[in-house]
Design a protein around this nucleic acid. Structure first.
Lengths: 240, 240
DNA sequence: CGGAATCTTGAGCGGCTTCAAAACCTGTGG
DNA sequence: CCACAGGTTTTGAAGCCGCTCAAGATTCCG
């Protein structure tokens, strides 16, 4: 049992480490397996763009004209439902790809991407990156893999949303965020996020988020400050 | 207003018509734009398999070794949540592709696929179809498009699930099913489905489904029998 | 004509949301 | 250095939506 808990923490730390390594060259996943020369050529046709907090990269329904690769910072990807409520579908970190819709022959962005902090993206125009994808099958294969990963992630999130109580959803949201954008420190995994965003992700109200986090803090599972959550015992969150 | 309603109905009928045409050759989307000779070669390496109701094509977590294209019948795609509850992610009809996970270098199916009625699929082994995808970039492009369409659909479903009341979710589920697997008749769109499956898709209880459908029937929006729903006024469902 | 599956209906209850208000942080500018 | 204004978080009370449970009605099929 005790060994099990350690395994889980190691597993999370490992997953985070992988994420870190991926961040070293944030175009890794898009250009994985591409030769240095081709890679050079492709990168040369992109431009860098700085991001400031709450800057919008693109909005739901806009014509998909650009592909983005996030290099630094975090980006919130979501939608405004018809009721005007925000539905956050995911929070992306360095190395993630945005705007895959531009690989469809004629399509619009399916969500809105908004920066959460200062950051940087690499940008390609639609026709440029598509030409490369056509020219280098390896790139197209990578795009396919990234897209499939999205499908898997959305499937997870779907399951999470419809299953169980608010407490379970928040717990799973936290652990999954820990793997995605958490930073490990001495004895905890830290996630920079506000209650309201957690609420959107877990599909519960900010009030309930507050109450649950407070409860967990009393139990010693997490500790928290304003805009940050420290996961002390990920294993306790997982065994819900 | 009245014109608007008619537009909506036409739009749905149109979407259904497109689905029908796609069903004529159920490998259309996978092999779209592929020359006759190549198409021949690819189809030759597949085999046909008959489906009987409740037959399982594959299960969550199994190694993805086969790609399926649904030719006839309907297939339910879902998961069992940790609580043992079934989460239906979608109901697929003729022309839909299953088992995309086998395009990942090493991956498992992310859900369970189960036939709902008698039907037929075309099956390729993982390495066979991957070789073709590699050989004919057009095929790989098609796979990418199909996958992106899944992402878009899942995103829709995510939004639907977290937004609004049970009534809204069921309404949107019904219209989306109408487009996907509905058959248009003289003055209605018919969907063969049981309350319980509707309940899973809209994430509400079967009892609530019953109550809502009854209500709508009283209002003349739909009529229904056992295991079938006739949508009489899709426009009324949409303007929730 | 049973018997099984499906659907209906009602009553009670509980988890979560909503609303309102107060407490709390954090950065800013005087 | 302090005070103030902004956003964030906490807490309590009330209410409601949809679930659960139980029982009955309906339809289908052998």
């Amino acid at each position: 049992m005790r060994g099990r808990a350690k395994d889980i923490r190691l597993w999370i730390a490992d997953a985070i480490a992988k994420d870190r390594s991926r961040a070293r060259d944030a175009t890794n996943r898009l250009l994985a397996g591409v030769g240095p020369d081709e890679r050079q050529a492709i990168v040369a046709r992109s431009r860098r763009q700085a991001l400031h907090p709450s800057q919008v990269l693109f909005r739901t329904g806009e014509r998909a004209e650009q592909l983005f690769v996030l290099r630094k910072g975090r980006v919130k990807f979501g939608r405004l439902s018809s009721a005007g409520r925000e539905v956050v579908m995911g929070i992306l970190g360095p190395g993630d790809v945005l705007g895959l819709a531009c690989f469809l022959p004629s399509s619009d962005y399916i969500g809105t991407a908004e920066a959460l902090d200062r950051g940087e993206v690499r940008v390609w125009n639609r026709h440029v990156i598509r030409r490369f994808a056509h020219k280098y099958p390896q790139v197209e294969g990578n795009v396919l893999q990234i897209t499939l990963a999205y499908v898997a992630e959305f499937a997870d999130r779907l399951e999470r949303l419809v299953s169980g109580t608010a407490e379970q959803r928040l717990a799973r949201t936290l652990t999954s965020l820990g793997v995605g954008i958490g930073t490990p420190s001495h004895s905890s995994i830290d996630i920079v996020i506000k209650n309201e965003q957690l609420a959107s992700l877990a599909d519960i109200s900010p009030f309930t988020v507050s109450r649950l986090l407070k409860q967990w803090e009393r139990d010693g599972v997490i500790s928290k400050g304003r805009g940050i959550v420290h996961i002390l015992s990920p294993e306790k969150l997982l065994l819900e």
